[in-house]
């Protein structure tokens, strides 16, 4: 055996692994170094007293409070649009549909999952413009359009996690209720879904993370640089990732740039926490499934 090739492999692996770790550490370290100082209540509310801002007594102009609120509302709407549809489709795929149909549907979901988010955003944008021209002259890109487009973006994740969580249930548990006279839906709703719940929750958390971080979809479908707090489903709104993007290209002063760093740290923490949580739940589930598989 070639001793040199083995040595090179080991060295190469260490170099590559440490280089990538280093790159990520530098990127995040730089962000924290530059932005940690701006993490205070002024970052959120600017010169306005927090209580006044939260009670909507005064508008916040130089803090990121409107963007935080916008992201929260956006995530809430799009996830509540996508979750019921995604879970329903996942149940259909895992429990009702014949194998052939499952493959065909699965292919469409995979395509949707891989479609660049800017394409989905552009789809939302052009449909809105199209409707504006033809049926609904008062419709413009707005919070609702963004939420719907984001729902399309996360739909395949929800479907797939639901499907996989259901299909991972052992055959023994799966046929318990039917043997006792359960109809298919009784089996799904009373036995299988409760069992698959953790998996579905992990998919939902992932969807929340995706909605919170996505910039490409919303930048075409209604997010604006300064709209204040979200007021209506049919109006523009602010969002954290878009705020970061605008600051990076057109910051007016050092204060705004510092706010950009602060906002980036907040989004970073939010998303990494959500993603790790989702991974943690999934690895727990996998370990539980593996434990069961042993005799």
């Amino acid at each position: 055996m070639n001793r040199l090739a083995e040595k090179m492999t080991v060295i190469g692996a260490w170099v590559c692994g440490l280089a990538l770790l280093g790159a990520v550490a530098v990127l995040l370290g730089y962000l924290v170094m530059k932005g940690a100082g701006s993490l205070d209540s002024a970052l959120l509310f600017g010169d306005v007293r927090p209580a006044d801002a939260l009670l909507l007594r005064r508008q916040v102009f130089d803090g990121i409070f409107p963007a935080v609120a916008g992201t929260l509302v956006l995530v809430l709407i799009s996830v509540s649009l996508a979750v019921p549809a995604g879970i329903a489709a996942g149940i259909y795929l895992a429990e009702y549909c014949p194998a052939r149909t499952r493959r065909i549907f699965g292919h469409f979901y995979d395509i949707l999952a891989a479609t660049p988010s800017i394409v989905i955003g552009f789809f939302g944008f052009s449909v809105t413009i199209f409707l504006h021209r033809t049926l609904a002259p008062r419709l413009y890109p707005c919070l609702m359009v963004s939420a719907l487009s984001l729902a399309f973006l996360v739909l395949p994740y929800l479907i797939r996690t639901t499907q996989m969580a259901l299909e991972g249930i052992p055959a023994g548990l799966r046929r318990t209720a039917p043997a006792l006279g359960a109809t298919r839906w009784q089996n799904v709703s009373r036995v299988l879904l409760p069992r698959a719940l953790t998996g579905i929750v992990s998919g939902t958390i992932l969807a929340i993370g995706r909605c919170a971080e996505d910039t490409a979809v919303i930048m075409l479908t209604g997010v604006v640089a300064s709209a204040g707090l979200p007021r209506s489903l049919w109006a523009g709104y602010e969002a954290l990732p878009f705020y970061i993007y605008t600051v990076s290209s057109q910051y007016a002063d050092a204060r705004e740039l510092a706010n950009g760093y602060g906002a980036a740290i907040i989004v970073l923490i939010l998303c990494t926490v959500l993603f790790s949580l989702s991974f943690l739940i999934r690895s727990r589930l996998a370990r539980r499934a593996a434990g069961r598989a042993l005799p």
């Binding site: 318990t176 039917p178 006792l180 006279g181 359960a182 009784q186």
Partner: peptide
């Protein structure tokens, strides 16, 4: 089918 399975019970190996 559900009615049939209510009248024909089954107990499994495990």
């Amino acid at each position: 089918l559900p009615a049939l399975r209510r009248r024909v019970g089954m107990v499994f190996q495990t």
